[in-house]
Each structure stands twice: as structure tokens, then as C-alpha cells.
Write a protein that binds this DNA or RNA. Sequence first.
DNA 1: CTGGATCCATGATGATACTG
DNA 2: CAGTATCATCATGGATCCAG
Lengths: 236, 236
Amino acid sequence: MYFWGSVTEVTTKSRTFGHFCVLATALERLGDRWTLLVVRDLVAGPRRFTDLSERLAGITPKTLTQRLRDLEDHGLVEADRVRGRRDVWYRLTPAGQDLQPMLDELVYWGMRHALRPWEPGEPAHPEHLLWALRIMLEREGIEIGPVSWVVRFIDDGTYVLRNDDDGWTVAPDGVDNPDVVVTTTRDAWARFLTSRPSERAVDERDLHCSGSRTAVNAFLRAIAVFPFGRTRARQP
Amino acid sequence: MYFWGSVTEVTTKSRTFGHFCVLATALERLGDRWTLLVVRDLVAGPRRFTDLSERLAGITPKTLTQRLRDLEDHGLVEADRVRGRRDVWYRLTPAGQDLQPMLDELVYWGMRHALRPWEPGEPAHPEHLLWALRIMLEREGIEIGPVSWVVRFIDDGTYVLRNDDDGWTVAPDGVDNPDVVVTTTRDAWARFLTSRPSERAVDERDLHCSGSRTAVNAFLRAIAVFPFGRTRARQP
DNA sequence: CTGGATCCATGATGATACTG
DNA sequence: CAGTATCATCATGGATCCAG
């Protein structure tokens, strides 16, 4: 007798496609609702259960637990449980990190074919928007020499978007003498990025850019790669 | 019966994540069960409903209809309906075709982290296996000059795997003077590819390779990139 | 407070049969 | 060939509760 999964055997019983096809098998492990979004939020680094809960707005704790257990069972996620410490840190294994190229492709596809306008009140996490922005800068071949832009969120952390020999990268905080500093809120940043590039002002409600005029203009020209969000027409 | 919406309105109501994140939006359109497998089977070219039913073994007609309608609504699939002709041909739009790089990455990930042994009786469609093989040849940088290998399935069609200036490609049939011709069945081909490379014989049950000894050896060396399928251990 | 577990409701999917 | 119709089941969401 062989028990796979925890005591709650029912919850770990995932449905299979029954095809001998590696794509089908991959989707059996990744295709459940929320699963790839959990990976998305672990790509940037280890997170606690509540960190994930906040980024995965709308997920129920039950479902988050299930997804983390499934990912652990399949060797994509490891949990760091330290005796005597309350919090559990979840992190991707190397197999989990290997999903990043696929997720990058999916983000790139989405930016071209699944972008929609931001709706006020809709959770817009800086990490998610900066990921998309980085992909577009990378894929559209924007090369403007060594540059670093800091985006400081009043209601969240600080991130730096940098272009250097490694291409475009997003990291938390920590850079000296950035070329541009944007101070804003999550919502204002979302509104800013999803407005028409020609209408993006460097000083609007809850958003301010500082830096030399040249640097700020270079910033605005570059982020024009973030396309104006249109809704796809649906056929009735 | 029609009230203020068509009957299909219910089926197109997809659940959303409610995040302003392009990855979440992309998954709202692609993340339903079977959806990406439908795309998989349309990437190689237009297919009829029953063609898809056969490749998507286990899908119910109702679900296949739903998925095709959803994909049509989102502009990834177009249906070719000709008056007076019974059959409907489904094909990817450009937006649908743009999914191929992402699917290639997912196949590559799966070959490294989600491969499992073939189980006798499990449907193994040539197109799916040849896709995976092509990806591995490509990603592992196998370069052996202009070469073409034909794989002829007694219980299916004939495919040619070719390496030339465009890299590795898979196409149906149609090549003169192939370097190797493999004649086999779906099941034998699956068994062959998932056995240890060192144990692959050029003349086993339901599988025969013809061609010069040199060419056949080059073939065998190259397809060693298809790794022996192991099962991932699961933590009890 | 974090990190879950439990109960119930419901919508999505599956099985099977049937039809224009 | 290309789907519908009907019924059953399972995964997920919402709300609530609980232990360290």
C-alpha cells in the first residue's frame, strides 16, 4: 500500500490527461488554477505564506496550501521550516526556477495579445508590472547603455530596474545614484503604465519622477514599449 | 431558448483572477483544462473537430466545443465553415501561432523535469513525440549538417524530421532520398524513444530502420537527446 | 499574529447517449 | 462529421474556526 500525498489524500489526487505527451504531463503538474501564479510570485525569491497570500489576491488559504503541497510533491518548491520559528519560507528548487523562460514567453505573449486596461481598485502589484516592463524592454531590443531607475512605492517597497551588460534586470532596492527616481503608489503606477505613452506626465497625481531632464526623457521613451492596454473585442 | 444572451454565453464566462497582471490575464485565457492541448494540436496545421478529438484522447465533445469557442472568442482560433460542406476546419490565428515559443519552452521544461515512462496502451501520438524530439535536438545544439529522416507509421501517417539551414523541423511526409527511413507503429516508436539510448536497436519488434550504416548510426547518436523516462519520486 | 483546517455551496468538468 | 442533452462528480470559492 502506497500513500502519495499527505493524509488528505483526496486533495492531492490530480487529474491526468492520460496522454504520452510531455506537454500534457507538464500541464498536469502546472495547469491547475493558481499554480503558475504561485510560481510567478516565487521567481523573485523566497516568500512566506502570507507574502504569497497578499500577492495572490483572492486565493483562499486552502487553495494556496494545496498548491504549495502539490508543487512540493513534484519537486518544484521547497519549504524552509525552522523549529522554533513561526514563519515558513517557500522557495523554488532548480526545477522550479527552470520555469522562468517559459513564464517570460507567456508574459511576452500576454503583452502582445492579452493586455487589458487597468480597472481602478484592481490589485496591481509592482513586481508583476515590472516583470512585464522588463520583458518588453528586453524583447523590443531597447539598449540605452548602463542605466538604473528606481521606483519607490509609498504603499510597498522599492525596486530598481537596471540595464547593464546582463541586459535588463529588476531587483529590490539597493542602488547608488540612480538616473531616475519615480515615487508613486501601486495604483498610480498602474494607471501611468496603462495610459497612452504620449500622455504620460512626469508629475501627475501620486506619481513624480526626479532626475535630469535628459535621463527622465530617456526613461519615458524607453517605457513606451509598455503598450496602451486595449480590450480585445469579443464576438457575441 | 434565447433570453438576453445566447446559450453559449454561459460557457464563455470564464473565471478571472482579478489581478492586474498580464500573466494572470494570459492564464485566464489559456489556463482552462485542455485549452493548451487544443493549441498544441493546431500548431502543426488546421484540423477538423474529429482530428482534434482523436489527438485529444479522453476529451468529451462538449468540452472540446467549449474550448474551441473560447479560443475563437479570444481571437486565437478561426473556424473555416463552408456552406454545403459538413466538415469544419479549425486553424490558429497569428495570435494563436505566437504561442509556439511558449509551448516550446514548456516542452523543453517538461523533457527535463516531467518526463515519465510510457505505459503500454497509453495513447502516444507521433506529432507529440516528434515535437519533443525536435525541441531536444534544437536545444541540445545537435548539428549534423543537412539530413532528413522519415518516420513512417503503419497505423498513422508519415513524418519527416529534417535538419538544414532553418534548424530542425518536423513536417508531414514528402521528401526525396531520406538518409534514414524508420517504419514502425505508434506504440513501438514510443517504446523505442523511452528506452535507454544504449538499448535502442535498429530492428526490434514493430520497428525497423533502413539507410546506410553511417546514417543510421548518426540517427541513433542524435536521438540520444531524448532522455530515458524516469518517474519523479514523490514524498509520502 | 501566522499558517493553516473545516464545512458547505457552486460551477466546471466528465460519462454517456443521442441528433441534424 | 460536428456537435447536443442529460446527469453525475470533483475542484474550487467563501466563510469560519483553530492551534502555536
